[in-house]
Computed example of a mutant assay.
Amino acid sequence: MDNITFYNNAGLRLSGVFQRGTNGKLVIMCHGFRSNRSSRGRFDRFSSTFQQMGYNVLRFDFGGCGNSDDRPLTLAGEVMDLTAAINYAVGLGFENIALYGHSLGARVCLEAYNSSYVNTLLLTGAGTGPVRYDWTDEFSSTQLKELTATGVLTLPVEDPYRPEIKIARQMLLDFEQCDQQELLSNITCPTLIVHGDQGEEEILMPLTKKGMKWLPENSKLEVIKGAQHSFMEHLNEVEAITCAWLRKHF
């Protein structure tokens, strides 16, 4: 496993790890909201499995997360970061790329999709359309007051590289500002979307089900019964589904 550094178009330093495979193909993994390249251990596990299958794997921290340079989180910023990761991979000689995204990382994969190099998408807990969250359930009144006053919210995180992250007001708006038909109709590669049916997934899964008609015909929605948005109790099933997809489509 090699530590890597690359830069987005704004000059922001992005930090990641590269795991060497044997088949000349690359999986780029995109973590979710308020997370990092480890994704609570999910990406550590899955990337090791993908590497054992022969795939090269690149995992990185979005700007403002993990060991990457600081900036307030926005969807546009993360799309810029993933575009930089794809360009970095192409610069290394990779032309066959799969994007794996969880939660917000899945939305970023859809937004940053590049048909010239990306051959398939694997998305878990994806937000494929507009979702309106009640942020009073997620953040304290003090944090929301800070957001109103400054346009940025400060959130403590458990991360080996940083004590806190900054979330821009636009980031919270980005979740609900989404044209599902436009977003999904842009995708031309086989796309796997894995959802649970509990908690937040009770909202996200039906939204994806509604939007599947705009994805290519060889795309697939898999629903894991009993799974929450984190899938932490169902990692064996997620791993089996995604590995089978990679074998067939990548």
Rank of each mutant, 00 (worst) to 15 (best):
N119I: 10
V90E: 06
L121H: 01
G101A: 05
S103T: 03
C65N: 10
F60E: 04
G91Y: 06
A98P: 02
N56I: 01
G129R: 04
A89T: 13
G93A: 11
N119D: 11
F50P: 00
T74D: 07
E111M: 14
Y113Q: 05
F94T: 13
Y55T: 04
Q51G: 04
G125F: 04
V118F: 05
N67M: 04
M53Q: 13
L122M: 14
D44W: 10
Y88P: 02
C109N: 10
R42F: 15
T124K: 11
D70H: 01
L82D: 03
A85I: 05
F46M: 09
A76L: 13
P72G: 00
C65K: 00
S38P: 03
E78I: 10
G105V: 07
L110G: 07
R71P: 04
L73P: 15
T120F: 08
S39D: 15
N36R: 09
Q51A: 12
F43E: 05
R40F: 15
S47L: 14
T49H: 02
M53P: 00
Q51D: 02
S103D: 06
L122G: 03
I97Q: 03
S115M: 03
R42Q: 13
L104T: 14
D70A: 09
A76T: 09
T74I: 08
C65G: 02
D70I: 02
V57W: 02
E78A: 07
R40P: 13
D44Y: 03
L122V: 14
L104G: 00
F46L: 15
G77S: 07
L104Y: 09
L99H: 07
Q52P: 00
C109L: 09
E78W: 12
A126R: 14
R107K: 13
T128A: 09
Y100K: 09
P72W: 00
L58V: 14
G101P: 00
T49D: 02
L58N: 05
F46T: 04
G64K: 01
G129T: 04
R71N: 02
P72R: 00
R45I: 03
G93H: 08
F62R: 03
L58D: 13
C109Q: 10
L75P: 07
N36E: 08
G105K: 12
D81F: 03
T49G: 00
L75Q: 08
T74Q: 12
Y113E: 01
